[in-house]
Design a protein around this nucleic acid. Sequence first.
DNA 1: CTGAAAGCGCTTACAG
DNA 2: CTGAAAGCGCTTACAG
Lengths: 359, 359
Amino acid sequence: MPRNSKPTRAATLADVGRAAGVSAMAASAVLNGARTSARISPAKRKLILEAAAKLAYRPNAAARALANRRMNTLGVAAVIEGGELNHYFLEVFNGILEAAAREGQNATVFALHDWGDDTLRLHSICDGRIDGLILVAPTCEYGNVALPAHTPFVSVHANCPLPDVINIESNEEKGVYELVRYLISLGHRRIMHLSGPAGLLGTERRIRGYRRALSSARIKFDPALLVTGSYDSQTSRTIMSNWLGEHSGQPLPHAIFCANDSAAVGCLEALAAVGVRVPEDISVAGFDDTLAARSTVPQLTTVRQPLRAMGARAVELLLERITSETTQIAPTKSTVFTTEIVKRASTGQPPTVAQLIPG
Amino acid sequence: MPRNSKPTRAATLADVGRAAGVSAMAASAVLNGARTSARISPAKRKLILEAAAKLAYRPNAAARALANRRMNTLGVAAVIEGGELNHYFLEVFNGILEAAAREGQNATVFALHDWGDDTLRLHSICDGRIDGLILVAPTCEYGNVALPAHTPFVSVHANCPLPDVINIESNEEKGVYELVRYLISLGHRRIMHLSGPAGLLGTERRIRGYRRALSSARIKFDPALLVTGSYDSQTSRTIMSNWLGEHSGQPLPHAIFCANDSAAVGCLEALAAVGVRVPEDISVAGFDDTLAARSTVPQLTTVRQPLRAMGARAVELLLERITSETTQIAPTKSTVFTTEIVKRASTGQPPTVAQLIPG
DNA sequence: CTGAAAGCGCTTACAG
DNA sequence: CTGAAAGCGCTTACAG
């Protein structure tokens, strides 16, 4: 049966109104306006609902946004490292998605290449298509960022306080401190720290927690055991492999605390490549408790950051700012989440006989 | 110094025009209109640019979308399993993000709970806020989905042909066939398949490839070695642990081919828990070559699906459909990508002496 | 080369 | 309770 062959256009409120024999705005009240909907008589209401169903009416988001000055969409900006979003991001993003769905908001991802140079892209994002923006782990330096005006922001794990931006973080130093204390309690003394790139706040906090734990147990800090690594597993693997190569024949550390789970994965690979067994020969621990921590064999002992909850909180705080309409934010209201040690199979007691690095 | 304390409003084209002493549409031509921009005289052009800079003008996306009938935003819908997006999705999503950025498009993620029941949510997505939608691994059944009209679609790894939807997939059966042939070439005969949930197209293709490889080597198919598992690592771990428990004392299979990398991770964990070594005692292989395959120790032998490329292709095809304006799609133009075996450390030769399942 | 007008689809006051 | 009007910010024909 031949039908209207024109490329059909989506029905509008006017179409629905016409079909139901009422005005477009009566249709609007029933179909979209939560507040004024009660004012329409039941009979009319029914007609409108039926017409809308028949025409498969869908409100046009752009038009609503223009009239409402609200998109019901949250932006999420993060840096893509090495061409891919990482486990850390995925975890935070899951929390964001969940909370956003709960609040009837959508989430749009903006993948940046660099926090510093991409301010341009950041600006182009803030053009009304989002109501607010969550910056995930922005590593920009203080004063080095020009955030767009008129757009509410929230950051997760910002590298430094951003002007007028709420920041969400966790008690990283304490988490590291407790983890290293745990390693010490297992009997480890020579504990290496495969740390993150220098200069980052998270890196410094981990180093601080690590050193504080050592000194609390009267273990002398050995600079040779503090190795600058990366938060990425590939890079970490390479760095760890090189380190093992350069130190072959020397005593194997008792344990390694890695800057995050991805680094720990790279570390495990490097150790496996030279035949060092975990945890029999050496203990390895990570940080974050991402999916990666449960994907390794043995599973990783790590410090759990409630990344999903942090993502969810980011959504809540952002929404608060959006609806409150205030451009001003009183005190830099930053939220600190609690970390917690997760003990798994990658850590154990040190071997009874001293081990040497193979090679 | 006191300033205008009113909550400042973002500048509009009218504001810019006023500041530059020209009409709003001249400003539009220079600032946003790529096509008509050349028609404005250099002098005016300069004034407009300066005014725009001074006012920090940003075009309003909602207004542009309404006028242009184009949002420059692509939707990505996927099911969140067990509360989180998985490795498979992340890989495809990375490809989507990359291609979208290249084409000046944004990507919005819609997390569904279920392909079947969430058609409602799917519909509510298609309200003009996106120009097209990519369905990632939709498991809906044929005829069971009512896709919204007026919105171009592309699916990746659809479970069945969706009406008028371009589908992107890979040659899964061939990949499995080659992988199992590889296991056989290493000397394995008793090869278990920890398969996905029954009824899914991907599951059936894997089983087909597995059985075809066995029979090509004249190995009799043993139904006891075809175990229904899951595409999720936690579930797979449980299923595998139970299986090992139920079969303790019986001969250990030579190798296990798992439905995907996540399942293989669960399998590795279950084996490690009972002290079976990989690959010394048994070989294990996965499918997909996601990040998980490189995060295990030992790293996983697997079948590489070019998931990122597939995501990128989805963007390209979707954009084609969006710009071509044709609601009709001639033949169901599906794109099949090539798979490839990736040999890593989780597979090796079978042990010389027969092993039994511990317990 | 340039501006005034109309319209994209929806809402929010404002009259009846 | 209901409708006609104006406006959200941008663009695309249409006249000058």
